[in-house]
Design a protein around this nucleic acid. Structure first.
Length: 129
DNA sequence: CGACTGACGGCCT
DNA sequence: AAGGCCGCCAGTC
């Protein structure tokens, strides 16, 4: 298969993985990357989400892929270039019951210990301590 | 077609 | 503890 086919597979994998995130939960770009077997490309995961088709016709589109449930490993909604985008993401998350707090610098954060969804990772690590 | 840009994250100061 | 550096590689200019 060609290189672009692999790229396509990567996109499909990302979208499929994101759809696994339960309603009202969030995970990180890095975790999605790990789940699809490419732990070193969290950045590319972000690119995929950025390019989700708007068309309702597309197999994977802005409507059926819960892109809003993916934030960075620090539990902060990535500001990307326009703060308004993150602001919108926060609104969508709150709409499904996720509490989003605003930091001193305006960062929009989510409590990962409460809303985080990280299957395959040490489950009790956080609880133990 | 080459150079620059990032919805990130981990390792190194 | 906090911040800088670098790898990743599809898009965009």
């Amino acid at each position: 298969m060609t290189r672009s086919d692999e790229a396509t597979i990567f996109y499909i994998s990302v979208y499929a993985a994101v759809q696994e995130i339960p309603y009202g939960k969030v995970t990180s770009y890095g975790h999605i990357a790990k789940l699809i077997g490419t732990p070193q490309r969290p950045r590319q995961v972000g690119i995929c989400l950025k390019h989700i088709p708007q068309d309702a016709d597309a197999h994977y589109n802005h409507d059926n892929v819960p892109w809003q449930r993916v934030i960075n490993s620090k539990g902060i909604i990535s500001p990307r270039s326009q703060p308004s985008g993150a602001r919108n993401q926060a609104a969508v998350l709150q709409a499904e019951g996720v509490t989003v707090t605003t930091g001193a610098l305006g960062e929009l954060m989510v409590d990962l210990s409460e809303y985080g969804w990280f299957p395959n990772e040490l489950p009790s690590e956080a609880d133990e301590r």
